[in-house]
Amino acid sequence: APTVLRAQSPVLLRMNLVVSNQDPSFPMWQDFGKRIEEAAEGTLKVEVYPTETLGKTNDMIEAVSRGAPILQDSDPTHLYNYKPDFAAMMAPYLVKKPEDIGTLWNSDLVRGWEEEVQAQGIRVLTMTYFGTRHLLSNRQVEKRTDTQGLKIRNAPTKMWNEVGRVLGGIITNTAFSEAYTALSQGVADGAESPLSVIYSTKWFETKPYISLTGHLVATTSILMSQKVYDDLPEAAQKALDTVGRGYTAVRQPQIIALEDEYRGKLEEAGLTFNDVDRESFFAAAAETPDHFPEWTPGLYDKINEIIG
């Protein structure tokens, strides 16, 4: 875009994160930005902003599609409007282990989806492991029947409600900022998240049990504007591509170490962990495609084939 009163060189990209600057992943994203700057040889500058400072995620993704020079923190469900199949990456019990994320992202299948969203102005910069989600609640859940009548807090989107359905129980939608209050006052009996989030949000103060449902091996993604990318010098484009693709492998061990650390912290805080008969959830999880008629037929089989 042309500028009236200000010129800009190197090109400044602002990264808009959901997490706060106290979150353990914040310095990791700063490191990601530094890697891009170094690889770009002075053509790019990356600034990292915490807690959706620049705008709410969904609004900023729309702005990105219109050419905003922003690197937006997100997950594959946010691409649902642009290519519904992306949401399957966040379907419960589909992705089995952290390594699957890289395999899937680099497959021909997902590269095809990427091209489709690029045509709509959005470019996927990186996809990497976010953490495995478990259930915090006021009772121990060992199999799916145990969640009956349990009010489980979810974000109000289609895929999160689907996660709630697979877990069983009663879906209770609240905004993230109201979740602590909802848990502490009993509007919700439980909530699901990676261990680090359960810790940093202090949700663990409200309920005694964490059941290791492992229902979602979650992906996090950074999106940018295809238009901004096209206007960049070649060195910058190359830097974004190589650092972005390579980052999947960099982040994964960091997050796994973090999960161990937070399990320790939560146990120290007095929470009781229990294992879960995950297979009792599989039948419900297999029904997920029925609730997403907009997905390409046979999507689950293809994904299962790719991740083996």
């Binding site: 042309p2 009236v4 009163l5 200000r6 702005a63 219109r66 050419g67 905003a68 020079p69």
Partner: peptide, 11 residues
């Protein structure tokens, strides 16, 4: 509109 023209204005 005038100072920072990098963002789409309808944002």
């Amino acid at each position: 509109g005038m100072v920072n023209t990098f963002m789409p204005k309808e944002t």
